[in-house]
Amino acid sequence: MHETLEIRLTVNERSEAVRIEPRETLADVLRERLSLTGTKVSCDAQVCGACTVLVDDLAMSGCTFLAADADGRSVRTVEGLARDGRLSPVQQAFIDHAAFQCGFCTPGMLMAATAILEEHPRPSRDQVVHGLEGNLCRCTGYEPIIEAVLAAADAGTVDEGVAGW
């Protein structure tokens, strides 16, 4: 028998208890045990940002974050962004600004963007660029993504009813 441990965490506000091996990453647990496959794994080296998830509101690389370290913490993934069938402002802005083509980087981009907007509700362009520096996109050339995040910031400010995203 290999060593296992039970972790308790919330994922998109749902309590979960999962028995894992120490070597399992958060991305492994989300994808393989909780069937939350929105989180992608690409470079597996913390460089591309496809696996970006929020742990206690901070952007982390799910590919290199031990699931054991999520014990007792709150995890958010792309599956948790929409509320009651309504996309979050940043998700809607990605559609409106054509901020994705193939879509593989999009879940990570959305989570990174969400973290930026929660920290800086009215970010400067520099703050958006700085916050997205570690998320790679091979389709868009980044401009539509930056525009979408800035637009989402404006949308979020106007519609205070969605301040919780």
Partner: peptide
């Protein structure tokens, strides 16, 4: 340093 995820962890 590196990127925001590396700085957070």
């Amino acid at each position: 340093i590196a990127n925001v995820r590396v700085r957070n962890a």
